[in-house]
């Protein structure tokens, strides 16, 4: 059977969200034969540059969906628009990011459509010729390999777990559709939006994260980490203890009750490595720890470490990175 794979691309700050090419990569891996088709769906008001960028990805078609009511920008609108476009899209697999949006609309659509769903996929494998999905449970302490028993299903994919699909030099065709929503479809209204000053890089999408814990001693400690983060183009993360101590906004917290991140490089400064912290970052490709306690648990699962005072080490690191990145 040639299946039709729908990938939902998100738009953030007027641009295609960074995880989009990764979702396309997953879709390509799921194609069972040459006839399988990948449709990249954008839901929302027209943004020319985003559609053009999306069409450069190796997909068969880009479909931009809009609905016939005033666009507020809620996830409910995207949910209802996708649902109303179901017949037209005729998809078999829906690939979403494991993002705020994906976590919300994925289970809703799976339930409505009677589809299966697997959340937070980090790898695809093969079990006796059938595709299987690897996902972390118990805060990354166990991985599950899951086989889908239903032909139609939704996946949410962890950011940075898959490489980005490369542009193939072709521009896919772009279709535009205005979807008529039932009058009472939208039940939620957006009263206000507060953009959060999390810096330029979204924590869950960042390729590099510089993270601070109680060892940074105070809010000034996070200022102290900023030059290192800037040189690396990194997002700033934190432990829960640092959040509870009021050093930094809760949106930076990494861990079991914070964000789950999977960057190429995670630099933990003054973080002991509690199991709940590890839960949020253990699938990072490379973990570096800077801690003055040689027995800190973080050294057990870091790849590289320096035993020392972060206030002495970090400026040297910044300097060394600057040398190699700016030469």
């Amino acid at each position: 059977m040639a299946e039709k794979i729908i990938v939902l691309a998100e738009v953030q700050n007027g641009a295609l969200r960074k995880n989009t090419p990764q979702l396309v990569d997953v879709a390509r891996r799921l194609k069972s034969n040459a006839e399988s088709r990948i449709i990249l769906v954008l839901a929302g008001p027209k943004i020319e540059s985003v559609a053009t960028e999306a069409a450069g990805l190796p997909v068969d078609q880009v479909v931009r969906l809009e609905h016939d009511q005033a666009w507020q920008g809620t996830s409910e609108e995207i949910l209802e628009t996708l649902h109303a476009a179901r017949q037209e899209l005729e998809g078999d697999i829906l690939v979403l990011g494991n993002t705020s949006l994906g976590k919300e609309i994925g289970p809703c659509l799976a339930q409505r459509w009677g589809w299966g769903m697997i959340s937070d996929v980090i790898r695809l494998e093969d079990h006796q010729g059938k595709p299987t999905f690897i996902r972390p449970c118990y805060a990354g302490k166990v991985f599950d390999e899951i086989e889908m028993l239903q032909p139609q299903f939704v996946l949410t994919v962890r950011s940075n777990a898959f490489p980005p699909a490369e542009n193939d030099g072709r521009q896919a065709e772009i279709l535009e559709r205005v979807i008529a929503l039932p009058k009472d479809a939208l039940k939620t209204s957006l009263v206000e939006v507060v953009e959060r000053p999390t810096g330029k890089v979204e924590l869950t999408e960042a390729d590099v994260i510089v993270s601070g814990g109680m060892g940074v001693k105070g809010p000034e400690g996070f200022e102290f980490l900023k030059p290192l983060a800037e040189v690396l183009g990194a997002a700033i993360g934190s432990s829960r203890a640092a959040v509870l101590a009021g050093f930094i906004h809760p949106s930076h917290q990494v861990g079991q009750t914070g964000k789950t991140v999977s960057p190429s490089l995670y630099i933990a400064c003054g973080i002991s490595g509690a199991i709940q912290h590890k839960a949020g970052m253990s699938t990072s490709k490379c973990i570096v720890a800077i801690n003055k306690d040689p027995d800190a648990p973080i050294f057990e699962f870091a790849d590289y470490g320096i035993v020392g005072d972060l206030f002495e080490v970090v400026p040297h690191l910044t300097e060394e990175f600057r040398k190699i990145l700016q030469s």
Binding site: W115, G116, M117, I118, H127, T132, P136, C137, G140, K141, V142, F143, D144, E145, I146, E147, M148, L149, Q150, F153, S282, T283, I287, A289, P294, I298, F299, E300, F301, A302, D303, Y304, G305, I306, V307, G308, D309, E312, V313, H316
Partner: peptide, 24 residues
Amino acid sequence: PGCRVVRHFLPAGRAGAHLFDGTP
């Protein structure tokens, strides 16, 4: 159920950090 757990497995442990000594 719509899906089946083929297996649970523990993530490969990391070997422990390679530590760098010397001055900062």
